[in-house]
Amino acid sequence: MDTEAVRSFVRAAELGQLRHAADELGVTQQAVSKRVAALERELEVRLFTRSARGVELTLDGQAFLPHARSIVAGADRAVSAVRPGSRALRIDVLGLRSAQAVVLHDYWRSHPGTDLDVVTLRVDDPTEVAAAVQAGDVDAAFRSVTDPAALPPDVRMVHAFDSPLELLVGPRHPLASARTLTPSQLRERRIWVPGIVPRSEWADFYDQLATDFDLRIDAAGPNFGDEVLLDALAASADVATLVGARDRYLWPTSHGLRRIPIVDPVLAYPLSLMFPRTSPHPGLRAVVDHLASLAPLPGTVWRPSWAPAPRHARRSH
């Protein structure tokens, strides 16, 4: 059923004149007349009687009018639900405990009126996430496509912020008492990072990190989740892992785990934001401005070669 024909019928019924309905809808009187006639043919009933004074509802028209109003209202709600600016801003984060989610939550707390929908696409390949942005499944995503040639031309990727890495160890680990660590102190140490997925951005990140600093990144074994990893660290005297400084991890007090910053240089995991080049969601600008206002990391910072360079960033390899 043509919703514009139904809309024309409703306004003509309420105003009593096809001409007045046409003026309000921004079409010709002939267009309204044709729409109503087509609707009558579809329903196989007469909706109006016409006279010199205008139009009056028939009994069938009176019975149809309340349902027609519901159809028009439902169509308007459907359009509003997907129109940028009328619906919530949908942003993909890697996980609800990730640094991306933490920073986005900080933004929302400072802008409590923001209509925000935080989602987690169950996708590891960033090119698939870029395709979701391109298709409009999400308005933006905190992901990085490490090969510029693989980024769709109508999707823009900008630097969001850097997440400095920390070494997470159990209380019996030889480095547990250190206040800070340098990358050279991590050589020959087993750094267990389960869940490094081929073609993921973090696979590219850890490959370059291991090469540049001669680190032993161990991705062996299945990823059974954070809880299993934290239990293993608490029980081990030689296993460590790397976590982002803003990432949220929770463990029992009895585990006694230690988070140790890495400095000289700071090892930064770069977070990017992807969004459409044209007609982005109106609410996205304030988020991008918030990200741009975040303070840069102090000191010398290492970032992978594929990362979009932020303003004032200092690079070291």
Rank of each mutant, 00 (worst) to 15 (best):
P198L: 03
R199A: 09
R199C: 14
E201G: 11
A203P: 03
A203E: 15
A203L: 15
D204T: 15
F205E: 00
F205P: 07
Y206F: 12
Q208G: 10
L209I: 13
A210L: 05
T211C: 08
D212V: 13
D214C: 12
L215K: 09
R216D: 05
D218V: 14
D218L: 15
A219N: 12
A220I: 03
A220L: 11
A220F: 02
G221R: 11
G221H: 08
N223F: 14
F224E: 13
G225K: 03
E227I: 12
V228A: 13
A234T: 02
S236Q: 07
S236L: 12
S236D: 08
S236Y: 05
D238P: 06
V239W: 04
A240G: 15
A240W: 01
L242H: 07
V243N: 01
V243R: 10
R246M: 14
R246W: 08
R246V: 01
D247C: 09
R248N: 01
R248P: 01
Y249I: 09
L250E: 15
W251Q: 11
S254F: 05
G256I: 01
G256W: 00
G256E: 00
L257D: 11
L257H: 04
P261Q: 07
V263W: 07
D264H: 02
P265H: 07
L267Y: 00
Y269Q: 13
L271Q: 09
L271P: 01
S272G: 12
S272P: 08
L273A: 13
L273K: 04
T278L: 02
S279W: 10
P280A: 10
P280W: 07
H281K: 10
G283P: 03
G283Q: 08
L284A: 05
L284K: 04
R285G: 15
R285I: 06
V287T: 07
V288C: 05
V288K: 05
H290G: 13
L291I: 03
